[in-house]
Structures are given as structure tokens and as C-alpha cells.
């Protein structure tokens, strides 16, 4: 156990040495990393796809006389094999078939779902909140005027500010309208303000999480490996 833990610690230190400068230790860790991952992926593709999605189903289909299934699997395998035409200079272009099938399918697949999740759902969320209450709400403004306080102000303006932000950001990214257009000129500064506030806040939000990653690694070295080493050497 100590052997493997020590390997893990040394490799971690080798990676961290990159912060000082590029050095043989980092190069070793980097190349080891690449080799391990590529080898691992080959094994995974073999076991999860070649065996589980091709060989096993074909065997099963033959056994159960499901010929339609068998034909489908064989066609897919043959199309995949077309990629290997790359190894020949002359027949290289044949590999465009699997590429265009893959690209075509995923493009078509993305159209309706992207429209739904990226656009319609988001716009709906800008008209009403999760509870179905409208974001532009005159009553909340009335409440604030009746009894002014920080919380009633927040309730009254947050919705309208959110709606305004979404609209100016959308306008900011119009491509076919000239910059002199009054609408674009009006939206420009507020849109940038919203974007920068948003990017800054997200940056700050993630910052703390990233710092804790490093603390986690140090924790492994000092609180897991070091006691194990002491224990092994000491007794």
C-alpha cells in the first residue's frame, strides 16, 4: 500500500513542479499521464464498445435469430471500419462517410432540444419565476411605495432588473445591426455592465472552490501518506 501511495505523492509533486518551470520530472509525469490515459481508453473502448455493443449483441442476435438486429449491427460496424480507409492514401476520402453521418446526426439531434432548453425555457424563466409569479409585477412596486424597506425594494426591482439585463445582453449580440443604431447604442453600456458583473461574480464564486482543490491535495500528502509512511517505518 505504501508503495502505491508513495507513487501517488511523487507524481503529484512532479506535476506541481511545473509551476517552477518545465523540468524532467514534469515531463516524465506528463508523458506517463498520456500513456496511462490512452492505454486506459483503449481498454475501455474494447470492453465497453467493441465487446458490449458489437461482439456480444452480434453473438446474441445470431443465437436468437434476430436477423434485423444483426444487419443493423453489421452495417454500423462496416461504417465505422470506413474510418480505417485513412491509412490508405488513395481511399482516404471514404472516411468522410462516417464523419458526415456522425456530424449530420448530432446536428439534427441538437436543433429541437437546443431551441427548447437554451431558448424557450430560458425566456419563460424571464417572464415568470419558478413559482409561476410574473417577474414584472406592479403589486410588488406598490408594496414598496406603501412600506419602503430594503427587502421590499429588492422584491420590487430584482425582477425588472433581471428582465432588463436579459434584453440588453440579447441586443448587444445583434450582428447585422450597425453600431450607430440607437437601440444598439442604448443597450451597449448596460449590457457590458451586466456581463462584467456576471463574469466577475462567477470568477469570484469559483475562485474559492479552486483554492480548496489544492488544499485537498496537500491534505492527501500530509494527512494520508505521511502517517502511513511514519507507521510503516516506525513499526
Amino acid at each position: 500500500m505504501l508503495f502505491w501511495y508513495t507513487v501517488a505523492v511523487l507524481l503529484s509533486l512532479a506535476i506541481f513542479s511545473f509551476l517552477w518551470k518545465d523540468n524532467p520530472l514534469y515531463k516524465f509525469a506528463e508523458h506517463l499521464f498520456v500513456g496511462t490515459m490512452v492505454g486506459y481508453t483503449i481498454v475501455m473502448v474494447f470492453s465497453q464498445i467493441i465487446m458490449r455493443k458489437i461482439v456480444d449483441p452480434i453473438t446474441l442476435a445470431v443465437h436468437n435469430h434476430q436477423y434485423l438486429n444483426l444487419i443493423s449491427l453489421i452495417i454500423a460496424t462496416l461504417i465505422g471500419l470506413l474510418y480505417l480507409s485513412r491509412f490508405s492514401q488513395k481511399a482516404q476520402w471514404v472516411s468522410r462517410y462516417p464523419i458526415s453521418i456522425t456530424v449530420g446526426f448530432w446536428s439534427g439531434y441538437a436543433i429541437v432540444t437546443s431551441f427548447k432548453t437554451n431558448i424557450l425555457t430560458q425566456v419563460r424563466g424571464t417572464v415568470v419565476d419558478d413559482m409561476g409569479a410574473p417577474l414584472l409585477n406592479g403589486e410588488l412596486l406598490g408594496d414598496f411605495i406603501k412600506s419602503p424597506s430594503w427587502s421590499s425594494l429588492d422584491l420590487a426591482v430584482s425582477g425588472p432588473l433581471l428582465v432588463f439585463g436579459v434584453i440588453v445582453v440579447l441586443i448587444y449580440f445583434f450582428f447585422s445591426i450597425k453600431n450607430e443604431n440607437p437601440m444598439v447604442r442604448f443597450a451597449n453600456k448596460p449590457a457590458l455592465l451586466y456581463l462584467m458583473l456576471g463574469f466577475g461574480a462567477s470568477f469570484g464564486y469559483t475562485f474559492m472552490g479552486r483554492i480548496s482543490l489544492f488544499i485537498g491535495r496537500m491534505n492527501f500528502i500530509f494527512n494520508e501518506w505521511w502517517p502511513l509512511l511514519k507507521q510503516t517505518i516506525g513499526g
Binding site: V123, L162, F164, G165, V166, L193, G198, S202
Partner: peptide, 18 residues
């Protein structure tokens, strides 16, 4: 502001993807 900015971006990105 963050929700507004990200939502505006997401809608635009959706249009780009489609």
C-alpha cells in the same frame, strides 16, 4: 445581474447552436 447575463448569453448561444 449574473443570472441576467448568463441567461442572455444562453439564449444567444442557443440560437447559434440551432
Amino acid at each position: 445581474p449574473t443570472t441576467a447575463a448568463m441567461r442572455g448569453l444562453t439564449i444567444g448561444i442557443g440560437l447559434g447552436i440551432v
